[in-house]
Structures are given as structure tokens and as C-alpha cells.
């Protein structure tokens, strides 16, 4: 068996800093998609609590802690992201699939992070309407994305094959904002 070298989605592209804003990549050990079976949401939430210590988040919300968190990613779908894969007990009430190699996770942090993202994302990013722990399926520079507000900025997930485009678009917005001295 050939020993293959694993490369992260944004290897060699990040981090990038401009105008006090930093775009970086995080590579979680596991990403598991959890899709509860019909009418099984409560059962999945209970199983997740028993196995991983967190309930399923509500629509547009996240739950858990930084090291292992559950993120709402659409109608009837959640991602468990972090140090552990979804426990096998969940498979009785939900469909699980390994998404580890499918997504790039980017962090956009700094005082002007919202101003950068506002240039390429139609979401209302004001702190009052998109709070810490809030998450949204939305569009970032014409790509489907998962955008979550974190403590110091945003976590942006795009499908792995779009990583280069996402990095080009986000760093472009960062450069533009920094050049205008708004950052």
C-alpha cells in the first residue's frame, strides 16, 4: 500500500492577513453529517446528549463546545465537527456520513471581519441579528456555504473543491477593504 500524504484543503494558501483581519484554515479531525430519520429528531438529540454531551441545536444554531460541536446545516441535517466521529449509537435513529474530506473550514477573524464578509455574502451580519453561535446556510461569492459566528469573527465552510475560489474571493475582499483604509 502506498503511503499517501494528506493535504489540507487550503494547504499552501493560508493564513492571509490584511487590514487587521486574518483568514486561516482549521482542520478538524472529524466531520460527520447527521440526518435524523423521520420523526426521530428528539431521539437523535437524546442519543447525541448521551454519547457526546450536547443536544441537537435548533434551526440556525450550534451546540456543544469548541473541541466538538454540532452545527445545524440545513433542513433535517447537522454536522458534528471536532475531535470525535458521531457515536455508532446514533446510526439507529439517523443517517450518518463521513464528511471529513468534503469540506474546507476557514476562519475569518478581526474587527472588520463582518465588513469583509458583507462584500461577498448577502446575510445580515450585524451583531444584533447574527449572534455568536448562530449559523446559516447561505451564499458566499456564489458558492453554497455554512457561515457561523464565532467569538472573534466567523467560521466559513465551503465544499473542498471550492477552496481555492473561496480563498481568492475572501482575500480579494480583504485586500479591497484594507486598501480603502476601513480595516
Amino acid at each position: 500500500m502506498v503511503d499517501l500524504i494528506a493535504k489540507s484543503p487550503a494547504a499552501g494558501l493560508l493564513p492571509f492577513v490584511a487590514g487587521g483581519v486574518t483568514l486561516a484554515e482549521i482542520v478538524p479531525d472529524f466531520i460527520t453529517s447527521i440526518m435524523p430519520h423521520r420523526d426521530a429528531r428528539a431521539a437523535v438529540s437524546a442519543a447525541l446528549k448521551a454519547a457526546h454531551g450536547m443536544a441537537l441545536p435548533g434551526d440556525g444554531r450550534t451546540s456543544g463546545r469548541a473541541a466538538l460541536r454540532a452545527v445545524w446545516t440545513g433542513r433535517g441535517q447537522y454536522f458534528l465537527i471536532g475531535e470525535a466521529a458521531a457515536d455508532a449509537s446514533l446510526a439507529a435513529v439517523a443517517s450518518l456520513s463521513d464528511q471529513r474530506d468534503g469540506w474546507a473550514l476557514l476562519t475569518l477573524e478581526g474587527d472588520a471581519a463582518a465588513d469583509v464578509l458583507a462584500r461577498i455574502c448577502p446575510l445580515d451580519l450585524r451583531a444584533g441579528s447574527f449572534r455568536r453561535g448562530d449559523t446559516a446556510r447561505t451564499e458566499v461569492a456564489h458558492m453554497m456555504a455554512v457561515v457561523t459566528r464565532s467569538t472573534r469573527g466567523f467560521e466559513i465552510m465551503v465544499m473542498r473543491s471550492f477552496t481555492r475560489t473561496a480563498v481568492a474571493q475572501i482575500t480579494g475582499a480583504m485586500r479591497s477593504l484594507a486598501a480603502q483604509g476601513a480595516g
Binding site: D59, G60, R75, P122, L123, D124, A136, R137, T138, E139
Partner: peptide
Amino acid sequence: PICGDRDLREF
């Protein structure tokens, strides 16, 4: 009904 007020381009 799930996400709230959103821009047309998402639809």
C-alpha cells in the same frame, strides 16, 4: 419559514 428573511439570490 426556517431561515427567515433572505436575499433572492439564495433561491
